[in-house]
Write a protein that binds this DNA or RNA. Structure first.
Length: 694
DNA sequence: AGCACGCCGACT
DNA sequence: GTCGGCGTGCTC
C-alpha cells in the first residue's frame, strides 16, 4: 500500500512511500509505519503502488489504527489538492490536518480514547433527538428573509458572497442555513478569523442548536480537547463544527454547508508551514463536494468581489442594520489645521477631545483605535541621534513603559530601558511616536468626567491580554460600564458587541495610505469599516453615533469613500487600479523567500533559481506568461540575525504559474545544497502561493 | 525534519 | 580514556 507520511519535500523522498500489508487496507486509513529508525503515523493513499520499486526492500506496515473510520475520499482529495497547489508534500499537508495528539498515539491508545469518547457522548446523543420549536426563532428582517430564501431555493449548490453591513444580522443567516443543513442530516462547518471570536459564536450556536453536539477546532484547545473535538467531527457525532482556519481541514463525513465569516480577513491565510488560504480551500471544498459555501463580509476581499461580479459566485446584499439603525456618521479631522504641541502633533485634536468628553458626560462609551502597541515605537536621543534599534533585526525596539523595557517585536530581544543614551551618555532620551500604552496615559490626563475626576480608560491589545482570562475580564469591565473610553489595537475592532459604544475614533490611520503593499488600502478600508461597526449597535443610539478619523490627508479617496460607507465605489476604484497595474485579483503571485546569514547568500540563491528556470527548456513556454522579478529584501530585512530576501513570480495565468512552480521545486532542492557562495549557503527557503502581503 | 554515524576538543 | 560539538547522509 502507499502511505503519506510527514516527510518534508526536501527530504529526497517521493510523495508517498510504499509498504507491504498482510491484508488490504482501504485508502484514508491511519497507520503506523516504520521510517528509518522510528515509527511514524501515516495516511493510506489511493495511489497504486509505485512500479519503479523492487518490492524486495519494502517494509511492512507496523499497525493499522483500528476502530477509527478511514478518512473519506473527499478529504483525501482536499489534502492532495492543497499539497499540490501550495507546493508542499502530501504527507506534510495530510498529517498537519490531523490533531497532533492523534499523530502520536498507537492503535491501542486510539482505541482507549475512542471508548472514552463514546461513553461521554452516549447520553448527549439521546438529547439530540429533541427538536427545537420554530416558535423560539427570532423574526427575520425582510432582507434576511430574502437572503435565506434565495439560499434555500438555489438550483445547484453555489458559493455565495453575503455582503452585509456590520450589524445587518449575517450571523442569523448563518444560523438559518446551518439549521437547514442539520435538518437534512448534514454537518455545517463555520469558520471565523480569530480564536477570540469562537466563544461568542459558539454561545450563539449552542443556544440555537440545543441538544446538538457542537465541536470547536482551534489552536487554543489542549491537545486532548483538540483530539476529542476532531473525533466528534470525524465520527459524524457533531452536527456543527466551528473553528479558525485550521478547521477547513476537518474530516466531516456528512458535510452539507461551509460558512466563512469575515471572509476578507487576512488571518485566513496561514503564515507558516503550508501557506494555505482557508477561505480559498473552503470554496474549493464546497465545489468539489458540491455543497453551498457562504462567504460573509461587510468589506469583501477584492478577489471575492471580482468573482461575484464575474458571476462565479452568487451575491446577496444586506445593506441595512437590524432594527433600522444607521452606521455612525463619519467625521474627518484635518490634522493640518490642528494646533501642534512642541514639534509634534497632539494625540487628540481639540474637536475629538471635546467629542469624547461629551460622550463621557452623557454616560456613553467610546473606542479609540490605534494599531500600534507599546508606549512608543522608538526611543531617540536628541543629542547624538541614537535610536533604539534592535541589534539582531532591522527594526526599532519598542519602548514599553509599564515594565520599563525596550522590546523587539520581531525577535523578542528585550532589555531594560537605559537611563542614558548608550552612545553619548545624554540623559534626555525621548520616546518618539505613540502606541496604545502612551495613548492610554494621555487620554487619562486629557479627559475628565463631569465631576472633574479623570476619565476611566481601558486598554485592550496583545500586551494587556497576554494572560489567560485578561481579555474576558477587560471586556466584562467595558460591558459593565466601568470604562468610559476603551483604547485598543485592531483586536478590539473585530466582532465585539459593545452596546453602549457611540463613538469610535481612529487617531492615526494614515500609515497604510502610501504603503508599497498594493493591498494596504484594502486592508485599511476594511479595518475602518469594521471599527465603525463597533459604534451605535444599539439601534436607538445609532443616529447619534460617530466615527472620527484624524488624518493629514482628508481628501484621500479612501476616506472620501469611507464617509459614505461606499464599499462598492471604493472596491471599483481599487479594482481599476489593480487591473492597470496587473496585480491580484487580475494576476496571480507566488513569493519565494530565502533566509541566510548574509543577504548576498540569500540573493545569490534566488538569482541561481531564477537563472536555472530561464535555462530550463520545459519552462520556456511558461516564461512567456510568468514574470520573475529580481530578488529584493523583505520589508523587515533582518530578523534574529537572519537576512531575508524574496523573489516575486507573477502571471495572469494561475495555471502557468502553478506549472512553473512545479518545475522550480526540484531546482530549489538541488540548488539549496549546490549553492555555496563565498558567504555560505542558505538556511532555508519557503514558497508562498497567493501571498497576502508582498 | 529526525536520527543516525563520524571524527576532533575539554572533562571524570 | 569518555562526553559531546554539529557536518553529512539516509529514511519505502
Amino acid at each position: 500500500v502507499t502511505v503519506a507520511v510527514d516527510a518534508p519535500q526536501h527530504s529526497g523522498l517521493s510523495e508517498v512511500l510504499t509498504y507491504t500489508a498482510s491484508q488490504p487496507v482501504p485508502p484514508g486509513t491511519l497507520v503506523r509505519v516504520p521510517l528509518g529508525r522510528r515509527v511514524v503515523s501515516g495516511v493510506v493513499m489511493p495511489h497504486p503502488p509505485q512500479d519503479d520499486l523492487g518490492d524486495a526492500d519494502l517494509r511492512p506496515i507496523e499497525q493499522v489504527i483500528e476502530g477509527l473510520p478511514p478518512m473519506g475520499t473527499a478529504w483525501l482529495q482536499l489534502a492532495q489538492f492543497a499539497a499540490r497547489y501550495y507546493q508542499r508534500s502530501l504527507g506534510e499537508v495530510a498529517l498537519a490536518a490531523l490533531p497532533p495528539e492523534l499523530r502520536k498515539l498507537d492503535a491501542p491508545q486510539v482505541l482507549t480514547r475512542l471508548k472514552r469518547l463514546h461513553k461521554a457522548v452516549g447520553p448527549g446523543a439521546a438529547v439530540a433527538q429533541e427538536s427545537v420549536g420554530p416558535a423560539e426563532l427570532p423574526p427575520l428582517t425582510e432582507e434576511q428573509q430574502r437572503v435565506v430564501q434565495a439560499l434555500e431555493s438555489a438550483a445547484a449548490p453555489a458559493t455565495t458572497l453575503l455582503h452585509g453591513a456590520t450589524g445587518s444580522g449575517k450571523t442569523e443567516v448563518y444560523l438559518r442555513a446551518a439549521a437547514r443543513a442539520v435538518a437534512q442530516g448534514r454537518q455545517a462547518l463555520v469558520l471565523v478569523p480569530e480564536i477570540n471570536l469562537t466563544p461568542q459564536l459558539e454561545a450563539r450556536f449552542a443556544e440555537r442548536f440545543k441538544g446538538h453536539v457542537i465541536a470547536t477546532l482551534h489552536s487554543g484547545l489542549t491537545p486532548a480537547q483538540r483530539l476529542r473535538h476532531w473525533l466528534l467531527a470525524h465520527l459524524g457525532v457533531a452536527d456543527l463544527v466551528l473553528g479558525t482556519r485550521m478547521a477547513v481541514f476537518a474530516s466531516l463525513p456528512r458535510l452539507g454547508l461551509i460558512v466563512v465569516d469575515e471572509e476578507h480577513d487576512p488571518s485566513y491565510k496561514s503564515q507558516d508551514g503550508a501557506r494555505y488560504s482557508a477561505r480559498d480551500l473552503a470554496v474549493w471544498r464546497g465545489r468539489h463536494e458540491q455543497l453551498p459555501v457562504i462567504l460573509g463580509s461587510a468589506t469583501p476581499s477584492l478577489e471575492t468581489w471580482l468573482h461575484a461580479q464575474q458571476g462565479r459566485y452568487a451575491r446577496q446584499d444586506m445593506p441595512a442594520r437590524v432594527g433600522g439603525g444607521v452606521l455612525p456618521r463619519v467625521r474627518l479631522v484635518d490634522m493640518n489645521l490642528q494646533p501642534r504641541a512642541v514639534g509634534q502633533s497632539l494625540a487628540l485634536s481639540p474637536p475629538l477631545q471635546a467629542a469624547l468628553e461629551g460622550r463621557i458626560a452623557k454616560g456613553e462609551q467610546s473606542l479609540v483605535f490605534l494599531n500600534r502597541r507599546g508606549y512608543a515605537p522608538v526611543l531617540f536621543c536628541g543629542d547624538c541621534g541614537w535610536k533604539s534599534g534592535c541589534p539582531n533585526c532591522s527594526a526599532w525596539r519598542v519602548f514599553h513603559k509599564l515594565d520599563r523595557t525596550l522590546r523587539c517585536h520581531h525577535c523578542g530581544y528585550t532589555e531594560r530601558v537605559p537611563k542614558a543614551c548608550p552612545d553619548c551618555g545624554n540623559l534626555d532620551i525621548a520616546p518618539m511616536g505613540r502606541g496604545t500604552e502612551r495613548l492610554e496615559e494621555q487620554l487619562a490626563q486629557a479627559l475628565k468626567r463631569p465631576d472633574g475626576s479623570p476619565a476611566r480608560i481601558g486598554r485592550i491589545d496583545a500586551d494587556s491580554t497576554r494572560h489567560k482570562g485578561e481579555l474576558e475580564s477587560q471586556l466584562a469591565a467595558v460591558h459593565a460600564g466601568e470604562v468610559d473610553v476603551l483604547v485598543g489595537t485592531q483586536m478590539v475592532t473585530k466582532g465585539h458587541d459593545f452596546r453602549r459604544m457611540t463613538l469610535v475614533a481612529a487617531v492615526n490611520p494614515d500609515g497604510a495610505l502610501f504603503s508599497s503593499d498594493f493591498r494596504a488600502a484594502e486592508r485599511l478600508f476594511a479595518l475602518l469599516m469594521q471599527a465603525a461597526g463597533r459604534a451605535g449597535r444599539e439601534a436607538s443610539q445609532s443616529a447619534q453615533s460617530e466615527m472620527w478619523v484624524q488624518t493629514w490627508h482628508p481628501t484621500h479617496p479612501l476616506y472620501q469613500a469611507l464617509r459614505q460607507y461606499d464599499y462598492s465605489g471604493f472596491a471599483q476604484a481599487q479594482l481599476d487600479e489593480r487591473a492597470a497595474a496587473s496585480v491580484p485579483p487580475y494576476a496571480h503571485m507566488a513569493l519565494l523567500r530565502a533566509e541566510a546569514k548574509t543577504a548576498a547568500a540569500a540573493t545569490g540563491f534566488l538569482q541561481a533559481v531564477s537563472q536555472a528556470l530561464q535555462d530550463l527548456p520545459e519552462a520556456q513556454a511558461l516564461l512567456e506568461s510568468v514574470f520573475i522579478y529580481p530578488p529584493v529584501p523583505t520589508p523587515v530585512a533582518k530578523v534574529a540575525n537572519v537576512e531575508r530576501i524574496q523573489m516575486l513570480l507573477e502571471s495572469p495565468s494561475r495555471v502557468a504559474l502553478q506549472k512553473l512552480l512545479a518545475l522550480a521545486q526540484p531546482l530549489l532542492h538541488e540548488l539549496r545544497h549546490g549553492y555555496k557562495g563565498p558567504q555560505g549557503g542558505i538556511l532555508r527557503w519557503a514558497l508562498d502561493v497567493d501571498p497576502q502581503a508582498i
